[in-house]
Write a protein that binds this DNA or RNA. Structure first.
Lengths: 228, 228
DNA sequence: ATTCCTTTGTAACATAATGATTAAAGGACT
DNA sequence: AGTCCTTTAATCATTATGTTACAAAGGAAT
C-alpha cells in the first residue's frame, strides 16, 4: 500500500535553476533526478521511469520541445506527464508546446509554490483511481479504525501515536501472518529506513501496554504477528 | 432551483465572435454576460454568478487556462462549469484543459447548434446530478448552515469568516474522518494551493476559540478531524 | 539440569517532530 | 483611513520517536 517516493525528473541547462527546483522538490518528499538537456532527459526518463517530468523549453543540444515529442513517441515514456518551463506564459501557446505533447506549463520565474501545487495536482489526478484500502479492521474486542485513526479496545477508545497505530494496523491487516522486522520496517517505516530494527520492539512494548499484552505475539527468531 | 433566466458568461477577445455567441444565446433565452479576457472573466464570474462559462483558450492579459484554474480555486465560482473554445478539437486533449478544471470544450469555428446543445447538456446534467449536498449539518449543539453561511452554536448564531467556515464545514462533512493537511488544502483551498499548510493550524485555532475548543480535534502526525 | 548464547523485553534518556499560540504583515473591502 | 480576513513567521511546549544499556527469557548442546 505504501509506495516509494514519487520520482520526478527535472531538466534544465541552467545549473542554479536545476538546484533550486531539485531542492524544493526533495524537501517535499520527491525522489529527484536531473538532466541538463533533452538528450539526457530521454535517457534518464527511460531509465528511472519518473512519475512526472519538468522540463525547460529552451536548452542546448536538444530543446524541450523536441525531447517532449520524442518522449511521447516512446511506449515506455509516452504516458509520463511533462510540464514545461517557459519564459513567458503566452509564449507557450505560440510555442505550440501542447502540440509537442506537454501536459502543462509553468511560466518563469518559477515560484516554488506554484511548481509544487502543479506537480501535486497532476499526480493527484493520476492516482485518483487507486483502490482505497479497507478503512476498518474489526476483531472480537478490538476495532481498528483507520479513518478516524483510533482503536477501540474493551469499550474504550484509544488514540495511539502514529507509529504505534500504523504498526498495529499493519500487523492486523494480515492476522496470524508473521512479519519479520525487516518486513515491518519496509511497510511501516517506508522505503528509506534509517531506523534500527529494535525500535520496533519498543513500539510493540508500548502497544502491548495499552492493549494488556493481547493481540501482538512474538515469534522468536522470526518476528511479530497479530492474533485476536 | 434556478430562478430567472439562466446566466451565461461568454469570454473571448475577438469582438465579432463574442457578438455572435451573445446573440444566439440571448435568442435562446439566456441572460448573457461578456468579458474580453481572463481577468475580466473572473471579475464577472464573481459578480454575476453565471450558471455556466464559455471561454476562449487563447486570450491576451490572461489566457483561458489560467482563468479557469483561478475560477476553480475560488469557492464562489469553483462549481461553475467551464466550456473552452479551442481552434482545433485535438488540441484540447493535449491542452490539458481538463487539468485546469474545464468541463467541456467546443472546437472553433463555433457552430450555433453545437454550442447550444452543449450548453444545454451541461446545464441539464448539473441540475440532475448536482450532488444534493446537504446544505445543513446538524449536530448536538452545533448547526452548520451552508446556505446562510452561519453556524449556530450554543444558542448563538456566529458569522465565521469564509475560510474558517469552509474549513469547519469541510471537516464536519465527514464527522470522525481524519483529514491530512494536504487533503484539507486540496478541498478547502482548491486545486492550485498556494498557501503553507500551517495556515490551517491558525484557522483551526480561531475556530476553536469561537467554539470553546470543541468539535475539532488534532491527530498528531496525521491531521485534524471533526467530532461532536 | 546446567551452561552458554541468542533473542527479546524494559526502562531511561536524548533528540526530533509536531502542533499551539502569538504577533505582525499584507490585502481586500468599506 | 480603518477594519477585518488571510497568511506567514517565530517561539514555545509537548509529545513522539529512536537509541542504548541492561535484564530477562528461551533454546540448544552438553
Amino acid at each position: 500500500m505504501i509506495k516509494g517516493l514519487p520520482k520526478v525528473l527535472v531538466v534544465d541547462d541552467e545549473q542554479d535553476i536545476l538546484e533550486l527546483i531539485r531542492h524544493s522538490l526533495a524537501k517535499e518528499g520527491f525522489e529527484v533526478h536531473i538532466a541538463a538537456n533533452g538528450a539526457q532527459a530521454i535517457e534518464q526518463a527511460k531509465k528511472v521511469k519518473p512519475e512526472i517530468i519538468i522540463m525547460d523549453v529552451m536548452m542546448p543540444v536538444m530543446d524541450g520541445m523536441e525531447a517532449c515529442r520524442q518522449l511521447k513517441e516512446l511506449p515506455e515514456t509516452k504516458h509520463i506527464p511533462v510540464i514545461f518551463l517557459t519564459a513567458r506564459s503566452e509564449e507557450f501557446a505560440e510555442l505550440a508546446g501542447f502540440e509537442a505533447g506537454a501536459d502543462d506549463y509553468i511560466a518563469k520565474p518559477v515560484r516554488n509554490r506554484v511548481l509544487l501545487s502543479r506537480v501535486k495536482a497532476i499526480l493527484r489526478r493520476r492516482n485518483a483511481l487507486v483502490t482505497p484500502e479497507p478503512e476498518k479492521y474489526d476483531f472480537d474486542n478490538l476495532k481498528i479504525d483507520r479513518e478516524r485513526f483510533v482503536v477501540e479496545y474493551d469499550g474504550r477508545t484509544l488514540q495511539l501515536p502514529r507509529k504505534e497505530f500504523e504498526l498495529l494496523s499493519f500487523l492486523a491487516s494480515r492476522p496470524g501472518r508473521v512479519f519479520s522486522r525487516d518486513e515491518i520496517l519496509e511497510n511501516v517505516w517506508g522505503n528509506e529506513v534509517l531506523v534500527v530494527d529494535r525500535t520496533i520492539d519498543v513500539h510493540v512494548r508500548k502497544i502491548r501496554e495499552k492493549l494488556d499484552d493481547k493481540f501482538i505475539y512474538t515469534v522468536k527468531g522470526v518476528g511479530y504477528k497479530f492474533e485476536s
